[in-house]
Simulated assay, not measured.
Amino acid sequence: MQTVQKPSRTSLTSHALTPAAVYLAVRLAGLVVLAIMAAAHDRSLLDVLKSWDGDWYLSIAEHGYDREGGGLVDAAGNFTPNTTLAFFPGYPVLVALLGPSVLSGLVVSVAAGIAAAYGITRLAGDRRVGLVLVALFASTPMAVTLSMVYSEALFSALAAWALVGVLERKWWLASLCCVGAGLVRPSAGVLILIVIVAVVLRERGYRGVLAAVVCPLGLAGYLLFVADRTGNVFGWFVLQESGWGTAFDGGVNTAEFVGRVLTSDAPLMETANVLTVLGALVLCVVVVVRKPPWPLVAYGIGLFVMTAGSSGVTYSKMRLLVPAFTLLLPVAAGLARRRTGTVLAVLSATALLSGWFGGYALTAWAYAI
């Protein structure tokens, strides 16, 4: 009689740690490249990792929303008592809990990125595909923000686990992650709609109804807070439009930007943004054709529509698309079918290219990302 050998404790531990290891390996490669480029520009790595929005988040973590400008201004070069309200509180609150500092911000981002890696692996359905998807997510063009004092990693983690909750009908998980995401970024609105539609289609019990009621509370609560502070029910949207020129225009501004870049001698950063937006548009079509679970399709396309459909700082579109990891599912599935050597070669190349581009964006490019 043949004895079935049980997996060793070491192999089980290795299996459990793999998503984190893949994510951290890709991000570490990017950070090494960034450190080299930062040194070439006489800047410290920590200083680079808190660039742009990082300074705002650290300011809010230390002083809250009641403070003077301290040299920080919006994209129009202004600062008002309400300017800081444009930034959602979820990320800086977590940073403040650890003690407001660059290192605290990086700890939050690293921990959130690891949490996102496990959620993304689980969403993929197939472990090999999931691990490839994690590597691709960690090496998107502006994945450097996942390792910065930025909210991309935290939002990605909450989004991934909210989608896990929807697919597995764990409504408490879906709703609580939606609440958290709503305190991090306005794009949580996409997740909220997905949860509500999923409840209507799949769950008529009290748990589903409760999830549908609870999931908008984070986003709605913060928008109402800003409305009260500004005296305008649309206060947050007014701050965004007046300070950063951001408003939903159905894609008019993006179309004009794409047209200008494709017909002129545009800088690398602008060209990369256009190629990323156009690539994401193609992936929207591919993901519909491939037919993964509809919440994953809706999430990716929803983030794309919010990003491409809004005006504002066009150089930020690559960053705003970082959490749209479900659009990469067809790419991950196709790559996962290749030989291991091929997979490793492709992922190594994307990690290094992402690292270089992130370094370029933070050290050579003069404007906000």
Results as ranks from 00 to 15, higher is better:
5 Q>P: 11
6 K>P: 11
11 S>N: 13
12 L>D: 06
25 A>W: 08
42 D>H: 12
48 V>G: 09
54 G>P: 08
56 W>Y: 12
56 W>P: 04
60 I>F: 06
62 E>H: 14
65 Y>C: 07
70 G>H: 04
71 G>V: 08
72 L>I: 10
75 A>S: 14
83 T>Q: 00
87 F>G: 05
87 F>S: 03
92 P>L: 04
103 L>F: 15
103 L>R: 15
105 G>N: 00
106 L>W: 06
106 L>P: 02
127 R>F: 06
134 V>R: 08
137 F>Y: 11
138 A>N: 00
144 V>A: 10
150 Y>L: 10
154 L>W: 00
156 S>M: 02
161 W>H: 02
167 L>M: 10
167 L>S: 07
173 L>S: 02
189 G>E: 07
192 I>C: 03
197 V>Q: 12
206 Y>M: 15
213 V>Y: 07
214 V>W: 07
219 L>H: 05
236 W>Y: 15
241 E>H: 14
247 A>L: 10
250 G>C: 07
253 N>G: 13
254 T>G: 09
261 V>K: 01
277 V>N: 02
279 G>I: 01
280 A>W: 09
295 P>L: 09
299 Y>L: 01
313 V>G: 12
315 Y>F: 15
317 K>E: 03
317 K>S: 08
324 A>P: 06
325 F>H: 02
325 F>Q: 01
331 V>F: 14
336 A>F: 06
342 T>R: 11
345 A>K: 03
349 A>Y: 12
352 L>D: 05
355 G>V: 03
360 Y>R: 10
360 Y>N: 04
363 T>N: 13
